[in-house]
Amino acid sequence: MCLAVPGRIEEFASDSGASPLEREGVIDFGGVRRRVSLAFVPEAVPGDYVLVHAGVAIQRLSPDSAAQTWQLLEAEVEGDSAPHEDSTKSGTVDDA
């Protein structure tokens, strides 16, 4: 599978190196903390949620996006006639 888990960036690691590849932060996974590489989420800052796999953040998540996806889905399942595609186009991760 590729077990990846969302966690919240608490802080940048104080001894992170200068190069982008050395960028690291402390991530809180609901009460469990670990140091994780932030090399691939250059735009992420403390407070952001990231998806972590094997000690590396592989994508920044927006908490709003998850909520939006859910709300749309709710509306859609109740009114069964709404076009399904909508549910999959909401709350996207920034493509930038």
């Binding site: 888990v5 966690g7 609901g30 009460g31």
Partner: peptide
């Protein structure tokens, strides 16, 4: 406990 569940999720 929530922290136990979170740690289990991370470690699979």
């Amino acid at each position: 406990r929530a922290d136990v569940r979170a740690a289990c999720d991370v470690l699979g």
